[in-house]
């Protein structure tokens, strides 16, 4: 089954709505709580990144009996050095964003830790696509 979410940028209060909604669906499907937690964390971090850095974007989720595949696409500034961005604690978030409690530099590392497959494709000035797969 396919799900689609539009994530609007800059709305920190509403950030995380897509991941909450996906979590509800997975609970309804009876996915085990450990797997849901992994998906929730990975997707939440990716969604927040889209809000903080890329002024929002779109999320497409594909669920079958084997895995949950999440694709997050944005047309933001892109990530110049993905390897560096993967480093724990590395963050380019503004002070404003940090004051809100985001931007601790754990986003991508947390995604990597919780996903069974993570692919980050990015082009500076064009945008970023993040693919997350978690096996059921």
């Amino acid at each position: 089954m396919r799900l689609h979410y539009d994530v609007s940028g800059g709305e920190f209060l509403r950030a995380g709505e897509a991941s909450s909604s996906l979590k509800k669906v997975l609970k309804q499907l009876g996915v085990s709580s450990d797997v849901i937690r992994k998906i929730a964390i990975a997707m939440y971090e990716a969604e927040i990144n889209m809000v903080i850095h890329a002024n929002g974007g779109v999320v497409d989720v594909d669920i079958d009996s084997e895995a949950v595949r999440i694709k997050l696409e944005d047309t933001g500034p892109g990530i110049p050095d993905i390897a560096l961005a993967m480093t724990e604690g590395y963050s380019t978030a503004s002070d404003e964003v940090r004051d809100l409690g985001f931007g601790a530099g754990m986003g991508l590392p947390n995604m990597k830790k919780n996903a069974d497959f993570l692919n980050v494709m990015s082009e500076v000035g064009k945008g970023t696509t993040v693919e997350i797969k978690v096996n059921l």
């Binding site: 089954m1 609970k27 309804q28 499907l29 009876g30 079958d64």
Partner: peptide, 17 residues
């Protein structure tokens, strides 16, 4: 947990759709 839609995941996905 609250009862699942179906024990079988494929059937559960069908029901959710």
């Amino acid at each position: 947990p609250a009862p699942k839609l179906d024990e079988d995941m494929t059937a559960a996905i069908g029901k959710l759709e």
